[in-house]
């Protein structure tokens, strides 16, 4: 009976987490309505709460991270899963999984002391204000999610039965052709799930982003296609919520609600991504 109770407890924890965020965030919805999502300005002293600039920051950082990490991660997974003999493969995979465990605060530290300066120097021709940019945060998160993508994509590739490869090799296809025509199509759902889980992580990543993103409010870009805002400071949902404003806000129920709602937005984004990944994993081993 205790087992059931524990399962319910875990469910209740998740439910109450969601409930608390919804409930505590209500006043902000009442005050700002949809403007909470569509508004670009956030001035808490004037009680203006618009989060679009932060949503932009979160999406921009995650996209930069994915653009960097996905091709390299999948390429590397192809190498480990398809081309490397078992022993080196195991070595690479184990090392990479160890590195997947490096705490984000350590990545943040590396970002603050190395990456920030490198980005600043590399961007000198574009005259940036500092090395704290959305791009810096995106690169840092990209490095952070690289091991996740590599490891999960490797799992997905290894999930394709060896006989399928043998049959295709037996027809005279070379290694790359087998990968393209047999392995990748079958591993695709698992690989996409890997990318989605990594995306979920990058959307919610706070510590590392916080340290290098510049935390500049109200940085809505003039053009969404422009890359210019990427090389200036910005703010993400998580870096805002993790900052000192959270401590200030408690006590002022409207301001607090606006802060908590940042978490709710984040939760909604991550949940959608997780649900998609879970659907794709349906046919996988857990089914």
């Amino acid at each position: 009976m205790a087992s059931w109770a524990f399962t319910l407890l875990a469910g209740a924890f998740l439910a109450s987490l969601v409930a608390v965020f919804v409930w505590q965030g209500l006043p902000a919805w009442r005050q700002a309505g949809f403007g909470y999502i569509t508004g670009k300005q956030w001035f808490y002293r004037q009680q203006i709460f618009g989060t679009l600039s932060m949503i932009y920051g979160t999406v921009a950082v995650s996209l930069v991270a994915l653009v960097c990490a996905v091709p390299i991660g999948i390429g590397a997974a192809l190498c480990t899963a398809e081309f490397l003999p078992p022993k080196p493969r195991l070595f690479v995979k184990v090392t990479v999984e160890l590195l997947a465990g490096i705490p984000s605060v350590v990545y943040g530290l590396l970002g603050i002391l190395f990456l920030r300066d490198w980005v600043y120097q590399a961007l000198t021709p574009f005259d940036p204000l500092s090395g704290d940019t959305l791009l810096t945060a995106g690169l840092l998160v990209g490095v952070m999610i690289l091991p996740t993508i590599l490891s999960l994509a490797d799992d997905a590739l290894r999930g394709v039965p060896a006989l399928q490869r043998q049959a295709a090799r037996g027809l005279g296809l070379n290694r790359s052709e087998v990968v393209w025509s047999v392995v990748l199509p079958q591993a695709a759902p698992g690989i996409v799930a890997a990318v989605l889980l990594a995306l979920g992580r990058s959307l919610g990543e706070m510590i590392a982003v916080f340290l290098v993103v510049g935390r500049q409010d109200n940085q809505w870009p003039e053009s969404l296609a422009s890359l210019r805002p990427l090389i200036s400071a910005g703010q993400t949902l998580s870096s805002k919520l993790g900052g000192s404003e959270t401590n200030i806000a408690y006590g002022d129920s409207l301001h607090w609600a606006a802060m908590v709602n940042l978490g709710l937005l984040l939760l909604a984004m991550v949940t959608v991504v997780t649900l998609l990944a879970f659907r794709l994993l349906k046919s996988d081993r857990h089914a």
Binding site: L163, Q164, Q166, A167, A168, R169, G170, L171, G172, L173, N174, V182, P185, Q186
Partner: peptide
Amino acid sequence: VDELRCRIGMLFQQPVVFP
């Protein structure tokens, strides 16, 4: 080797069809 395998086909114990 790939050229060789074009000249020597193979049938397995279980049918291995691609999806």
